[in-house]
């Protein structure tokens, strides 16, 4: 599950960057990406970067941050694919946002809240049965002392 989420983090960050100008320095590999400069005329400040030259994504680093082991062949294979995804998002740059206020979030709804009322999840057995190394009552994991 962690791997799937990490992959989402890799890709998820891309879409969001388009919407959120104040955070774009975090996605460093994105910042260097000139999203289809032929397609887009810069309208907002963040678009200005699009005119720099395209650097291919640093796949080994991305794989490391996502804790995914890739062979050199896979790195070869993924680099253009990730590039394609980025280009796909690049199409968003073509949208005219001149008269649109920056949004915190893409969705319209807000405050879908829940009452503070406890409910116990019934099928905990199944939840724990799916854990590969469950040693009652704890879940056993490899010893990890350093976090980064």
């Amino acid at each position: 599950m962690a791997v799937a989420n990490a992959a989402l983090a890799m890709v998820g960050g891309i879409g969001v960057t388009m919407l959120q100008r104040q955070r774009n320095q975090l996605y460093s590999f994105m910042a260097k990406n000139p999203l289809g400069h032929a397609l887009v005329r810069p309208r907002r400040d963040f678009s200005a970067r699009s005119s720099s030259s395209l650097l291919p994504p640093d796949v080994p680093r991305l794989a490391e941050t996502a804790r995914i082991a890739l062979t050199p062949d896979e790195v070869e294979e993924f680099a253009p694919k990730i590039g394609q995804i980025i280009d796909w998002f690049g199409q968003l740059q073509a949208i005219d946002l001149q008269n649109v206020d920056p949004a915190l979030r893409a969705d319209a709804e807000s405050n879908n809240l829940r009452e503070d009322f406890p409910e116990t999840f019934d099928n905990r057995e199944a939840l724990l049965a799916a854990v590969p190394t469950y040693e009652k009552p704890y879940i056993k994991v490899p010893k990890v002392l350093n976090k980064d």
Binding site: R114, F121, R124, P137
Partner: peptide, 21 residues
């Protein structure tokens, strides 16, 4: 230990968080 857990807080795929008011 591990008695007050569910698919959401265990991060299982397909679950969605809903914020406590």
């Amino acid at each position: 230990p591990n008695s007050t857990i569910c698919p959401v807080c265990m991060g299982l795929p397909g679950t969605l968080p809903v914020l406590n008011s």
